[in-house]
Every structure is written in C-alpha cells, then in structure tokens.
Design a binder for these strands. Structure first.
Length: 564
RNA sequence: UGACCGAUGGUGUAACGGUAGCACUACAGUUUUUGGAGCUGUCUGUCCAGGUUCGAAUCCUGGUCGGUCAACCA
C-alpha cells in the first residue's frame, strides 16, 4: 500500500499531527508526546468520545508517546463509580491500553489546593462571599464589562485564612468561593474572575468526605495536565475560549518547563442521530429506547450490542479526519466501515425473514441432502458448513412475484432461478388462499444443475432458502436509523414547542420471526454473520438455548431495492 | 452587532505561493451461484469583492455566512 514512502513524499498530516511534528522538531518537551483522554464519569461514552479516544491514543501511538486515561471527577454530585467502570470497559473494548496510567483529577486535590495557596500568596486569587446569583450579575455580559467584587481586594493573609477555613468546613455551601483575580472587563467571560473552588458537602466516589471544597474544571484540568506531564491537551472546540484561562493558570503558577498546550478540534456529529448527553438521557428516561445499550443508540455500548466492531469504529475515526471546522458526518460512512470489516470476517448463513413455502414437485418425498456452503467467499481459509436440502423449503416472499416487472431476476411463474448452493429450479404454479395470498409455490428442479457439479446452465437470479423441516426459528431485530431526518436537531425542521423527538423513526425497530439454517442452532452471543442477500447480524446476549436472537447491524447494499 | 474560531464537490478531508487530490455517496460499465463483494470509469468543489504576485484555495483588506462564550457543569 505505502509504496511511495520516499523522503520527498510529504505525508498528509492533519493539523494536530502537524503541530506535534513541529513541536518534536523544535524539541519542545524534549520531543516527548503525551496525551490523555479525560472523560467525566457522569455518563456513558458515545461515538463522539470514541473519536476522541482514537485521536488521543492514536496520536500517542503514532509519535511513540503515551496516552493517559484520566477521570475528570471534580463534581461529586454528578459522578459515580458505575460510569468509571463502563468507561474503562469501553476504552478497552475499542482496543486501547492505558497501561498503569489510570488517573483521577481527584488524585490531585491536595496538590491543587497547594497550588491555589501559591496563587493566593501572589495576590492572584481571593475568597469571594457573593452568592452565585450576585456573581453572575456582576459578571456582566459579553458586550458589557463586569463589576468588581467587593471582596476582591482582601489582604493575602485574610484570603489565606478564609480559604483554609473553607476547606475545614467552617462555611455553608454556596457562601464562599475562591476566585482567580484576573479582569472583570475582559471581553472573554472566562477571564472575569472565574471561580476556582466551590464548597460542596457531598460524598465523592473516591475521596469520600475528605473534601468539602472542589476545584472547577478550568482550575483542575490544566494543572492535572501539568502534573501528568501532558504535552498536548486535546479537547473540543467549545473550550477554545477557555484557553486563555488555561494559560493564565499555568503562568500564575510560574510553570515554564513542561507546559502542556491545549489544542481544540471539532467534535463529531452524525446524520440521523443526536449526540448530546442530555438528549441521549431523554431517550433512555422516557423509554424511547431500551436503555443506554439499545442497539439504536450512538453510545459505545449501543454500537457494540448493535454489532459494530472495534476495528470498524477505529477505521471510522480515521476516515472522518480531524479539523476545526464544524462537521456532520454521513452515517453512511459508518455503515461502510462496518460492512467493509464484516464482509471479510463474518461467516455467511441463510435466514428467511418473511417466508413463503416452496415445494419441489419432482424432488423425492422424504429425501434430505446435505449440501456444502462456503462460510465466507472473501476468505479462502473459512471452510464450509453443511446445509440440509429437501422437498419443502422456505424462501423470502419478496423473492417471488406473480406478475414481475422487467429486470426482476427472481422467481415468477415460468422463470428459473438458482437456489444458492443447491439446484436451478423453475416455477410451475402457485397455490393461493381465499384472500389471494400465495401460500405455496410449486417448482421443478433440475438434478444436473447441482452446485459444484460443473453445470454451465445460467440463470439471472440466486435465492437464499431454508429447508422447512430443518429450519430453526429465531427472533431477528431489524434495526434502522433512530431518526427519520438527517439532522433531527435542526431548528428549521422542528415546529415550535416540539423538539428532536418528533423526528424519531417509528420503524427503527422491527422484530420478525425468521427461519434460519440449523447450523446456527448453537451460536453463543456476540457472533457475527452475514445472512446472505440481506445484511450483517450479530447474536444478541438475549440469545438462549432454544431462543435465538439476532440484531441487524446493517443491511447489505441493495441496488435492486434502490431501483424500486 | 463584544470577543474568539471557522468557511474546498452531496458529505468529510488534503494541497504549507506553482497540475485542486483522497475517501464516502451517486451514476455507468465489468464481473459474479449474494441484485452482495471486487474491478474500471464518470459527475459535482476553493463563500463574495478587492489587493499583493509571473502565479493565490493558500498571503493582505473588507464583507457574507456558520459556530462558540454570560453554571459555584465538564
């Protein structure tokens, strides 16, 4: 593939790779590259996080660096161990290894406290006794400068004393905060004396009741980066306006060596889905989906249950690229990535979703043949499975038309098709019920056309089938996109008083009771298959002996359906 | 309209003052015991207006459009 890697050939680098390449060339941080993935453990990871994970671990990998997993757990009222566990499982499942570098912002609470004392001593932070509402009012608006806090000019000694007493728990929640003393007239709202610490009498999932003051994100994040000797602190675009503050804190601490650098990129958006934690939570809480791992959810756990593979998600993250421009990726690209992956790796099987009986009139009553079927034509090593064939079969109702249009290559009266791995057949007649619905299709088979016999007879169509008496029943969940419009959050498409929920696709889940070939009888959960001519599927954890359940990952591309 | 950021085919993303390329999508052909997969090909693009330059997607100026920011959230 990479046959042109001469010295002249300039590799195509994204903007992050360019920055890092330059930093290495300039020997910044001694040429080290160290990134981190910093989730807040307050919810489940989604595909946007997956992009960030692939980015941070991928960059470290590419430049011989390291990537830390760091939980940004500075708000005890929102964070839980349950989410720590699920996040770790998801990152690992995606294929990344943080080795022994599992860190928590809460590990640094004492360090952060000492740093704050340092800043207070420099006269650059003060304890403010205004209420949250007062602070908000004093902050002004982007166009109007804020007003100074009456507590802004306390002595260093007084600030030190008050801050220590905050920590000791002498004050009520909300009564005091520590604020950086920056510029209440800054056009950047984040520089208008931002809060560094607030009082919260809350139990923290790791530090328990050791602390009653907790650092804010802006104060904790950059300093945590510094403590971990992070070189490139990569975050999403909305933190761009925080960067001056990120740098201000580093300056206030007189950090000159090993200064981490914040770089922002545009988060992932996907068509036909919503991505914000709040909206996903709404879907779960209102029962619009069946939990966080519902196969229609863009959560990592949902994608996993849907049947997306780690490799397909990594390939996707690679292909969407990374830049600073707002983007909406077509979900078709994601689907392409999983098809590409599963086409090479998923064994084939036959399953009939909407069966109609096909009877081969000239096939001996009671006879069964075991016919070999290639497990995966894309993989010569894959081998075969045996499929029973008999006089009565099920085929897909859609594969028969009594009065077909031109270019219909499937079965119709008088036409010939091949039954995959078996014989060419001709349709002779049909039997209908009182309502005119076809109940039986009668055919003649041609014994000399048996697959593998070297028969050169050609037909236009090939159908999948299962032997009626050998078929196993299975529950098959046909998933489709959760929303019926590309951008469900677009205000232009949402009437007043409504929200994205009106765009929920009512057909996003159809459950059918299918007939599958008997080889599938014993599959355990989590196995991928291609059901020939229909799509890729995975056996669901709901599968039990005697009750098979499959989820459709994605249908096969279908140029016939498209023409219809 | 306070500040900051961004703008390249339908969607993403490259091009670092010198041939606008790649992927997905769409379409066509080829092949095929999956109307799948594969292979080949085609269509469609530098937001606008000026300027600098032999030469501008790239640099400058001014617009336009889009995004972000006013939690004791992250």
């Amino acid at each position: 593939m990479n046959t042109t890697s001469t010295n002249e050939a300039r590799a195509s680098l994204n903007f992050l790779e360019q920055i890092i390449t330059n930093d290495i060339a300039e020997k910044k941080a001694g040429g080290r590259v160290h990134t981190r993935f910093p989730p807040e453990p307050n919810g489940y990871l989604h595909i946007g996080h997956a992009k960030s994970i692939c980015l941070n671990f991928g960059l470290a990998n590419k430049f011989n660096g390291k990537c830390n997993l760091r939980f940004d757990d500075t708000n005890p009222t929102k964070e839980e161990q349950e989410f720590v566990d699920s996040i770790k499982a998801d990152v690992r499942w995606l294929g990344f290894d943080w080795e022994d570098r599992e860190y928590y912002a809460s590990d640094y609470f004492q360090q952060l406290y000492d740093f704050a004392v340092y800043i207070i001593k420099k006269g650059k932070a003060y304890v403010c006794e205004m209420s949250a509402e007062e602070i908000s009012i004093h902050r002004g608006t982007p166009a109007i400068p804020g007003k100074l806090s009456p507590w802004r000019d306390r002595s260093v000694e007084e600030n030190l004393d008050l801050f220590e007493r905050m920590r000791k728990g002498e004050f009520a929640e909300g009564s005091h905060v520590l604020r950086a003393r920056i510029d209440m007239a800054s056009p950047n709202m984040h520089m208008r004396d931002p809060v560094m610490y607030r009082i919260m009498y809350a139990h923290h999932h790791r530090t328990g009741n050791d602390w009653c003051i907790y650092p804010m994100y802006d104060w904790a994040h950059g300093q945590s980066d510094y403590l971990e000797r992070i070189t490139h602190s990569i975050c999403t675009l909305e933190f761009e306006v925080h960067r001056p503050l990120y740098d201000w804190f580093l300056d206030a601490l007189d950090i000159k060596e090993d200064r981490p650098r914040q770089i922002e990129f545009a988060r992932l958006n996907l068509t036909y889905t919503v991505m914000s934690k709040r909206k996903l939570l709404t879907l779960v809480q209102e029962g619009l989906v069946n939990g966080w791992d519902d196969p229609r959810m863009p959560t990592v756990s949902g994608l996993r249950r849907r049947g997306y593979t780690p490799a397909s998600l990594r390939a996707f993250a690679e292909r969407v690229g990374v830049a600073k421009r707002e983007n909406v990726i077509e979900v078709g690209l994601l689907e392409h990535c999983i098809r590409e992956n599963l086409n090479r790796n998923a064994p084939r099987a036959m399953a009939v979703f909407n069966p109609v009986k096909l009877i081969i009139d000239n096939y001996p009553e009671g006879q069964t043949e075991e016919l070999p079927g290639t497990l995966n034509p894309e993989d010569p090593e894959s081998g075969q499975r045996m499929i029973p064939f008999s006089k009565e079969l099920f085929i897909e109702r859609d594969d028969f038309m009594e009065d077909p249009p031109k270019k219909f290559f499937r079965l119709s009266p008088g036409s010939e098709v091949r039954l995959k791995y078996a014989y060419i057949i001709r349709c002779d007649s049909v039997v209908k019920d009182d309502e005119g619905k076809v109940t039986e299709i009668h055919c003649t088979y041609f014994p000399e056309t048996k697959s593998g016999s070297g028969s050169t007879r050609k037909v236009k169509g090939t159908l999948h089938w299962v032997s009626a008496s050998h078929a196993i029943e299975a529950e098959v969940r046909l998933y489709d996109r959760l929303f019926s419009v590309p951008e469900p959050e677009d205000p232009d498409t949402v009437p007043d008083g409504k929200d994205f929920r009106i765009h929920l696709n009512p057909g996003s889940l159809k459950i059918v009771h299918a007939y599958v070939e008997p080889a599938l009888k014993v599959v355990e959960a989590g196995r991928h298959f291609q059901f020939e001519r229909t799509g890729y599927f995975i056996s669901d954890p709901d599968s039990k002996p005697g009750h098979l359940a499959f989820n459709r990952v994605v249908p096969l591309r279908d140029s016939w359906a498209k023409k219809q």
